[in-house]
């Protein structure tokens, strides 16, 4: 849920007392009309708050935690779990790792340098994150805690989306750091969530070959299922347009 405009303006007074709305829109890169509209409607989007806090040099997590909706962010978060870190590695990077580990070692040559991982979020990061922290009852608990219908929750995951509020509720229900959910949804960066720069790389390195192979396999299978469904929809649509278009 977006934060109330009044509370946002109070916060802004505190962190940038002399800045006008024009200044804020210039330094944060948010269009003036967008900002004005959100203020008039009385609701400021979380992404706006994040951009503004970055622009004034405040960690977005600290900024979000000021607002009561995000009170869960006030506590010192636990470290991200290895499964969470791995869930935020793009499928292409996992496949690169599979190939890199499959190439026989050349004793003469120095080990090839590992290319940097694609920064989170990736195209299925939300669903992968929830799967990584799900003990089987997680969706149930989230829907009980927030009142969201399970099918609406699933629909958001399928679309690789989750509102910041739901992402935090999911993390709380799973007992992991609330910031992880905001990383998976792309609202904040890994660094802003306090993840070490090489945390994901190290979590990947600690996976056994078997774990890596099954994980990459699971990802491919899920992508395959989604693609097959999209292809069927596409074929059905093409057939309709071929005959009635």
């Amino acid at each position: 849920m977006p934060v109330p405009a009044k509370a946002f303006q109070r916060w802004l007074q505190g962190v940038a007392p002399s800045a006008s709305m024009a200044d804020i829109s210039r330094i944060s890169g948010i269009k003036r009309t967008t900002l004005a509209q959100q203020l008039v409607r009385g609701k400021v989007a979380e992404s706006t708050l994040v951009s503004v806090s970055r622009a004034v040099g405040i960690n977005p997590v600290t900024a979000l935690a000021v607002f009561d909706t995000f009170a869960d962010l006030r506590r010192e978060p636990p470290l991200p779990r290895p499964e969470e870190l791995v869930s935020q590695i793009a499928t292409t990077d996992l496949l690169h790792a599979v190939i890199a580990r499959s190439i026989p070692d050349d004793p003469g040559a120095p080990p090839a340098p590992q290319p940097p991982l694609i920064p989170a979020p990736h195209t299925t990061s939300v669903r992968n994150w929830v799967d990584a922290i799900d003990d089987g009852e997680l969706r149930h608990r989230v829907s009980a805690a927030t009142g969201i219908a399970p099918q609406n929750y699933s629909a958001q995951l399928t679309a690789n989306r989750l509102t910041p509020e739901l992402a935090i509720a999911t993390a709380v229900a799973a007992g992991v750091a609330p910031t992880s959910g905001l990383v998976a949804t792309g609202l904040i960066t890994e660094e802003e969530a306090g993840w070490a720069p090489d945390a994901r790389q190290r979590a990947l390195a600690r996976l056994s070959d078997g774990e890596l192979a099954s994980l990459a396999g699971d990802r491919l299978q899920a992508i395959g299922r989604t693609l097959r469904r999209q292809e069927q929809d596409h074929e059905r649509t093409e057939k309709i347009w071929e005959n009635l278009g």
Partner: peptide, 25 residues
């Protein structure tokens, strides 16, 4: 109904699903 389907083809023609959607950054 027929017109709607026809207009849909003109306006909404979509790209074929591809793996690129899952790798593109």
């Amino acid at each position: 109904g027929l017109a709607c389907i026809w207009i849909g083809r003109v306006l909404l023609r979509r790209a074929k699903p591809s793996l690129r959607a899952f790798t593109e950054k």
